[in-house]
């Protein structure tokens, strides 16, 4: 996987999937209107904390957070972050449901204790998931983290679980069981 480059947007405190990241009621409303898409959910990403975030953030930027993805296993929050065109989330702690859902949606998550001390708002970062390496290009600080293993990188490289599974089916590694009946 190629290194990811972008600017840092810092969010402190506990960030709930159903409130700070993207209110649950928005996901309900968009579903009712048939507008449940990354792009639509992205318009509400982090707006409870920074109302202009979706307008300010640029494609490829990072969310740098303290406790990311608190609460239920609702995956609309991951979609909302992707819709805001964020490339990855790097946080002190990642809630496990949030981590799993994000990776399955194709959004890399890195748990990196100490990240908030090493990065300032707007810093330019380069992250290398397979090497487990982060460089703060603005301050020349370098941090190491547990490399993301190849079988997870494969899913991220494919763009998430669905495209990954599609490749697997097409390559014959997942059988088409229904056709045999």
């Amino acid at each position: 996987m190629k290194p990811i480059r972008g600017r840092a947007w810092i969010f402190r405190g506990v960030l709930d999937v159903d409130w700070e990241i993207c209110p649950f009621e928005i996901s309900h409303e968009l579903q009712a209107k048939g507008l449940y898409t990354e792009e639509e959910l992205g318009k509400y990403c982090m707006t409870k904390v920074d109302p202009d975030f979706p307008k300010k953030v640029q494609s490829g930027d990072f969310i740098i957070a303290e406790y990311m993805g608190f609460g239920h296993d609702h995956d609309h929050a991951c979609l909302s972050i992707l819709g805001a065109r964020v490339s990855a989330v790097i946080c002190e702690t990642a809630a496990p449901y949030f981590l799993r859902n994000s990776i399955e949606r194709g959004l890399p998550i890195v748990e990196l204790p100490g990240i908030l001390k090493a990065v300032k708002q707007g810093d330019e970062l380069e992250v290398n998931l397979d090497r487990g390496h982060l460089t703060n290009l603005s301050s020349a600080v370098e941090l190491k983290f547990e490399p993301t293993p190849p079988f997870i990188l494969e899913r991220l490289d494919a763009g998430g679980m669905i495209p990954f599974l599609k490749n697997e089916v097409e390559a014959g590694r997942i059988p088409r069981r229904l056709e045999r009946r």
Binding site: D73, D75, C78, P96, R100, R105, I152, M161, F164, I174
Partner: peptide, 22 residues
């Protein structure tokens, strides 16, 4: 005990799921 959540389709297709040991 845990929930597959968005990853449920992957488990249903393959009988396997990935987790990050807590």
């Amino acid at each position: 005990a845990t929930t597959l959540s968005y990853g449920r389709g992957s488990y249903f297709m393959t009988g396997k799921t990935w987790i990050r040991a807590p």
